[in-house]
């Protein structure tokens, strides 16, 4: 008895496989690829007075020659970089503690670190205003002991930074702790055994093993921060403003969808750069 040729059953199985992936692929094309192409086309074909839409970079020239737009892009990049820096400074020690500490305190710290994940941004924004805003809780407490008021970060560039740092701590800690899972206890003990003190241990043994998760944090956080809206809108200054509120205002208040799409395209280019950084980090990790 001879075996049934594999090719007899392959076409139907192949069709089933293709049908299974077709739905998400088509949805992705419809909900993501199509809006991107449509937006890019609109941004690259500005409408002329005669109603024609020739291919032109006029919208991009307008953006990059407008000091206000550049200031908005600048404050967005500044906010993203400062927030990212603060997140790494706060979350790396936190993740190291959660990875290597044992006992009940570590469990409490982990719960506290995850807590912001369950607080909606709008509640966080109002809590921020009630605590750090003018005449907020901090001011009241300082006043009670006869000290002067704080210089409130509310409606300054630091307002969104503080809010975004708080909002992004849980995801950052989760990614870093997961990355630290690649560092075995024995690898750490072996380093201590050959004489590595804590700083050398972190720099030479732990950090190289968690580079991928740091790269993931950098790319994910930057993507999230670039697209952030609520916290910069509620806590940030009116001018300059971050790209999220800027796009919304250009689209809705100024009724200029073409320029809003141009701003979105420029934002997307930055996001693609961080997306590629993420893809490269993941590919490198798989290579290892």
């Amino acid at each position: 008895m001879t075996a049934r040729p594999v090719s007899w059953v392959q076409p139907s199985r192949r069709l089933t496989g293709l049908l299974l992936v077709a739905v998400p692929v088509l949805l992705f094309a419809w909900m993501t690829i199509w809006p991107i192409l449509s937006g890019l086309t609109t941004a690259l074909t500005p409408q002329q007075a005669d109603g024609s839409r020739p291919l032109s970079f006029d919208n991009f020239v307008t953006f990059f020659s407008d000091p206000y737009s550049l200031a908005n892009l600048g404050i967005t990049l500044w906010t993203c970089l400062i927030t990212l820096g603060l997140l790494l400074v706060i979350c790396i020690p936190l993740a190291l503690y959660l990875r290597f500490a044992q006992g009940r305190l570590a469990t409490y710290v982990q719960t506290m670190a995850m807590f912001p994940m369950f607080v909606p941004s709008i509640i966080l924004a109002f809590a921020f205003i009630r605590v750090l805003g003018p005449n907020g809780m901090a001011d009241l407490l300082l006043n009670a002991v006869g000290l002067p008021k704080i210089r409130s970060p509310y409606l300054t560039p630091w307002g969104p930074v503080i809010g975004l740092v708080w909002d992004n701590i849980p995801l950052t800690v989760l990614i870093l702790v997961s990355g630290l899972g690649a560092v075995s206890n024995q690898a750490v003990e072996a380093a201590r055994d050959v004489g590595a003190k804590p700083l050398a241990l972190f720099w030479h043994i732990i950090l190289p093993r968690m580079w991928t998760s740091v790269a993931v944090v950098v790319s994910f956080t930057m993507l999230g921060l670039f697209a952030s809206f609520t916290l910069p809108y509620v806590l940030g200054p009116a001018s300059p403003e971050m790209m999220g509120p800027f796009m919304q205002r250009t689209f809705r208040d100024l009724r200029n969808p073409e320029m809003a799409l141009t701003q979105a395209t420029i934002t997307m280019v930055f996001c693609i750069a961080f997306g590629l950084f993420y893809v490269r980090a993941v590919a490198r990790n798989r290579g290892n």
Binding site: Q186, E189, A190, P208
Partner: peptide, 12 residues
């Protein structure tokens, strides 16, 4: 100097 069961070499 300790030699561990899992070698514990630093793969990077």
């Amino acid at each position: 100097g300790m030699v561990f069961q899992s070698h514990a070499l630093w793969t990077h």
